[in-house]
Amino acid sequence: MEKIPILKMGKFLLVTIQVDLYDRLALTLEEDLIQMVFKTGSKGVLIDISALSIVDSFMGKIIGNIAGMSSIMDAETVVVGMQPAVAITLIELGLPLSGVHTALNVEKGMALLESRMPPSLDDANDDDVD
């Protein structure tokens, strides 16, 4: 069975989707990714879709699911590298993917996640006092 590889990069998980997604593959990805978030305790998930030439409502839903599920497990999801044509199509389709963070590329996505993390584990408690 085909699988999309999930890489652990420091505190975050990185998924680069290189193949055309058919529905079952997307569902498997959802399942695997959530398991990985749980197992690794990652605080952020980067999904690189720069190689995807299509995101339809089903894949939009999967991306939303991943973001929603990670979020209640205290991890943020950033979708990076969406193609202009895909963005225009998604808007016309009526799927603005609200609730999902976006970034231009993996580097910027990583910086975005970094900036949303508490400074360090020890300081995390002090934040509430402020």
Partner: peptide, 8 residues
């Protein structure tokens, strides 16, 4: 909205 989807 399309710009935001791109991450800008």
């Amino acid at each position: 909205n399309a710009t935001r989807l791109m991450g800008a």
